[in-house]
Design a protein around this nucleic acid. Sequence first.
DNA 1: GCTGTTTATCGTCAGGCAGACGACTAAGAT
DNA 2: ATCTTAGTCGTCTGCCTGACGATAAACAGC
Lengths: 244, 244
Amino acid sequence: MAPYDPSAFPPFAVTVDLVVLTVRHHTLCALAVRRGEPPFQGRWALPGGFVRDDEDLSQAAARELAEETGLRAQNGAHLEQLATYGDPKRDPRMRVVSVAHLVLAPDLPAPRAGGDARSARWAPVDTLLDEGGTDHPGETAALAFDHGRILADGVERARSKIEYSSLATAFCPPEFTVGELRRVYEAVWGVALDPRNFHRKVTGTVGFLVPTGGTTTRQGGRPAQLFRAGGAALLNPPMLRPEV
Amino acid sequence: MAPYDPSAFPPFAVTVDLVVLTVRHHTLCALAVRRGEPPFQGRWALPGGFVRDDEDLSQAAARELAEETGLRAQNGAHLEQLATYGDPKRDPRMRVVSVAHLVLAPDLPAPRAGGDARSARWAPVDTLLDEGGTDHPGETAALAFDHGRILADGVERARSKIEYSSLATAFCPPEFTVGELRRVYEAVWGVALDPRNFHRKVTGTVGFLVPTGGTTTRQGGRPAQLFRAGGAALLNPPMLRPEV
DNA sequence: GCTGTTTATCGTCAGGCAGACGACTAAGAT
DNA sequence: ATCTTAGTCGTCTGCCTGACGATAAACAGC
């Protein structure tokens, strides 16, 4: 390793970008913020910001998450590092390396962005990833910078990770029913699952779900048992994703 | 996002570190280099170096790999991004963010490190991860910086990824036998696998292996068919790792 | 050449799990 | 009272895996 002469290495700016996913109205949605300045002024982007001098990467991600959504990582939401993006041309102004993080959150109230609700929104990931049309004429739907690729990578991580881990519960409130958990899988994977086989699978996997004793009828129909997430982090055998 | 006034963000140094894994003598080994200067002078560390001003992260990793081993990523070896480490105190001199990459390589000739073979070696990962004793008195076996954690993360990534992908073939030469592939799994996982069930599994998974028509007896015993890696990247259903 | 050793390869069998789907339960809506 | 909606329990069949017997084809040593 070369000596640390300041002239011996090029200086970088390091940021964190957040892929914040939730399930709303049976649809997988991501948090997007509108850029208020060039480049990509007016375009949607992922929330994020600079890493400060004294904080770790995960601390920076948690801080940005709290600033953008009011969400605390320990309050049910899950935060993990996703990947790092460092193409020399990914920001036209200067060399920026972005450490993307993935957040899985339960359905939240409307997002806030410094109090300005119009500059942040939940959008279906299919809409954000669709490079084509938009609902507003004269505006491209594509995300700023390389955020489309970052979002795609985050969605793919979430889709594969709920197969073999209990992370799908991070999309649910603290107490939830088997049907609510099933609708999370259906929204994230974009498939329909058999309610009977799903029930057998999740209630038969030790450590996945813990019954709380209560029931709820908030979904309509017969009252359903309420569960909390169990201690198991990994599902073995995994939940099988049906072929498309 | 704040404007890009150079005084508005702290400058970082960005490096790539490499976890280069191979299987030698039935043992999972990693490439380690000896540090020639402080801090951690004389200690073993992962190979790595600064990202240059005009290269992407994966380009920097491929360049460092070629410099340290002479290995070309397209020549059978597999290279992927692992994770990024940015604790403010991970380097005592200044703020360094390291983007670690994982390399899976077939058994190579002795490593070279700028021609000085004594400063680079293949070491069993168990030895490198063992924080305790060492074979040389007065020398701690622990890797420099946070490289022990990085190596542990890389090994864990490799162990889980050969379950559901065909990546184990990256540890093999271009043509290999089923037995050689099985010994890769056994070395990476540290378990014994039933040769008959393993043979049934890998030859029955479409796209995993392609017979070349040749046979070899280099393992001793009855001649074995030679295979190349097939086109399939993902194994479905996965290879099951036995409980420990 | 014969025999033991090593590795490769084919078969068999039982248990477990997933997909398909029938049946019943318990609430609200009309 | 009946319909609708959702939840929960069972059954059956097929596939995959783990355990393990048996055979095949090379080499080493006597």
